[in-house]
Design a protein around this nucleic acid. Structure first.
Length: 538
RNA sequence: GGCGGGGUAGCUCAGUUGGUUAGAGCGUCGGAAUCAUAAUCCGAAGGUCCCUGGUUCAAAUCCUGGCCCCGCUACCA
């Protein structure tokens, strides 16, 4: 396999260890995983990074509650996210933790570069010492804007947080990043890079936010200590976002900017994020980088949220979707398929048991699983499980021949869709061919040729099985385990299951180098996507 | 309030630069077939394309006005 295109570096956000892994984490990483697998399969060099965010006041507190040293505590809880990778079959190349030495070094180096640099007017420094103040609620652990506060009904001279918690005016020294100075540079960057924020509607939001004016950003804290010390002033630790975002460059060796990894993979191809953290990635992060003289990433995609049976998911409602529970219930590949097939990527999704079962039973079991099963069984029963030869110059008499060429042209439609994160459309295109395959078998009626035209029957089955091989290879990034089981049943060697093995460009014989091999003895076919049998519960 | 995106079959949505009988999947009804996980295939029913006025030979598609829904409007990891 030779690299066929430029290296691709993609990332998930690092997940906050204080959270339990939920469907949102699984979703973000899944999207990245499918892209990573797809591009590797196309022959690209890929770096897929994920990890955990382990600093902050909440972590410090939780550790205390568990009577643990913060490092011990995060060592423990970060494991849950590694387990999520295993559970969901994610193929990340690295797993970064913000408490690692490499990251601390990286953050401090970035801080220095920012602080050594000047704002675009060339006069001010990017970082200055100031005072962070505001109305703080200890109970909520949050600052509120004056406009958000409400009058205390019992004591009208007093103000409360919107949550009803009492607030106090607090002040602490803080370093500030001169974000206000970078407004025009950011707008210019968005203008010159129309693909930088996706989907389009999010791009509009980002631009309008920046156009509305930017305030300087507090980037250090003194009120707690679980964080990365500010260089040359360890009474401060870095603001969590500066710390967290920097993981993306730590992961490819920053500050070693002469290293191969850095040169190969920066600027990042794609930061995948949930819509709630878009601003940090599309505004603050490029500003930090530009101020440090580093090129911003190429693209940030903000995806939507899932609701549970139409209800907003929240801890207090107790309707959080645990990836482990649904994977155990439906199977990992069914969950992977569902999440990317059910809604246009970028939109919010409606997770429900009923729609999950429909996808499993209709798309997977009936359309695709049954397609494979009917073809493989006919080969098994009529050809003793030996792949028949396609009859020369006769193949084009069959509808199945047209289907095969549809499957050969499929990659040219699907690949650009994956490159723009349109998973749902990609699967749609693939299923058009799956349905067409079923139609063409019905039209060709190979079972009727058993006696009078056995070689014709064999030709149809070869064409269909070869179509299935193409489909399975293209689908493998979405459902790696199931497609491997299917490719096992077609006797495709393990090292010929990539997109680069789809077909060669040589004209002539329909049997090409990597095509399904006639004469190959197949194992007894086993249904690849069993139906989900509805129980009485839910 | 400001900026942005929407309102299309029972449900979820597609509809490119305005152009023949407005599409798909699911659901419903009818039929064919029987290789297959009772899977598949064919067909039908079902829409005032939010309302309004206008531009045009022609508008779901452009413009006016209105109604409704959603997102963003800063330091909440």
């Amino acid at each position: 396999m030779s690299p066929s295109s430029t290296p691709y570096f993609l990332t998930t956000p690092i997940y906050y260890v204080n959270d339990s892994p939920h469907i949102g984490h699984a979703y973000t990483s899944l999207a990245c995983d499918v892209i990573a697998r797809f591009l590797r399969s196309e022959g690209s060099e890929v770096m897929f990074l994920t990890g955990t965010d382990e600093h902050g006041q909440k972590v410090e507190k939780s550790a205390k509650q568990h009577n643990l040293d913060p490092q011990k505590f995060v060592d423990e809880v970060s494991k849950r996210f590694r387990k999520l990778s295993e559970l969901m079959d994610f193929s990340n190349d690295d797993f970064i933790r913000t408490t690692e030495a490499r990251h601390i070094k990286s953050c401090q180096a970035l801080w220095k570069r920012i602080s050594d640099g000047k704002t675009p007017n060339g006069q001010d420094s990017n970082i200055y010492l100031g005072k962070y103040d505001g109305w703080y609620s200890v109970r909520d652990e949050a600052f509120y804007d004056e406009s958000e506060l409400i009058k205390d009904t019992k004591n009208p001279s007093n103000y409360l947080a919107p949550t009803g918690a009492s607030v106090e005016w607090v002040e602490e020294p803080s370093y500030f990043f001169r974000l206000s100075a970078w407004q025009d540079k950011l707008l210019e960057f968005y203008e010159n890079n129309p693909e930088f924020v996706a989907p389009q509607s999010r791009r509009n939001e980002v631009i309008s936010f920046v156009k509305g004016g930017l305030r300087d950003l507090s980037i250090s804290r003194t009120s707690f200590s679980w964080g990365i010390p500010v260089p040359d002033d360890d009474s401060h630790i870095m603001y969590v976002w500066l710390d967290a975002l920097t993981n993306y460059i730590t992961g490819i060796n920053f500050p070693e900017i002469t290293s191969d990894k850095w040169n190969k993979y920066w600027p990042a191809s794609l930061h995948m994020v949930g819509k709630d953290i878009l601003r940090f990635h599309a505004v603050y992060w490029p500003a930090f980088l530009m101020s440090a003289g580093i090129e911003p990433p190429q693209r940030v995609f903000a995806h939507g949220w899932w609701t549970n049976e139409g209800q907003k998911i929240s801890k207090s409602l107790g309707n959080v979707i645990d990836p482990e529970v649904i994977v155990r219930k439906y199977g990992v590949d069914a969950v992977r398929y569902f999440l990317l097939r059910e809604v246009p990527f970028g939109n919010d999704g409606y997770f429900s048991h009923a729609s999950m079962v429909t996808r499993i039973n209709k798309d997977l079991a009936n359309d695709f699983g049954n397609l494979a099963q009917r073809v493989l069984s006919m080969i098994s029963k009529n050809f003793e499980g030996v792949i028949p030869y396609p009859q020369k110059n006769a193949e084009c008499n069959f509808k199945s021949f047209e289907t095969l060429s549809l499957s050969q042209n499929l990659l040219s439609k699907v690949s650009p869709l994956i490159h723009k994160q349109a998973f749902n459309e990609a699967l749609d295109r693939i299923w058009e061919v799956v349905r067409e395959a079923n139609r063409s078998i019905d039209k060709d009626e190979p079972w009727k040729l058993k006696k009078k035209n056995k070689s014709g029957m064999g030709t149809i089955l070869w064409l269909q099985a070869e179509t299935i091989r193409n489909l399975a290879i293209i689908l493998k990034p979405f459902m790696p385990q199931s497609m491997d089981r299917l490719l096992d049943q077609l006797n495709i060697p393990l090292d010929e299951r990539n997109i680069v093995n789809l077909h060669e460009d040589n004209e002539g014989d329909i049997c090409q180098k990597y095509s399904l091999r006639p004469d190959s003895k197949l194992p007894k076919p086993v249904a690849i996507f069993p139906k989900y049998i509805c129980e009485f519960e839910d």
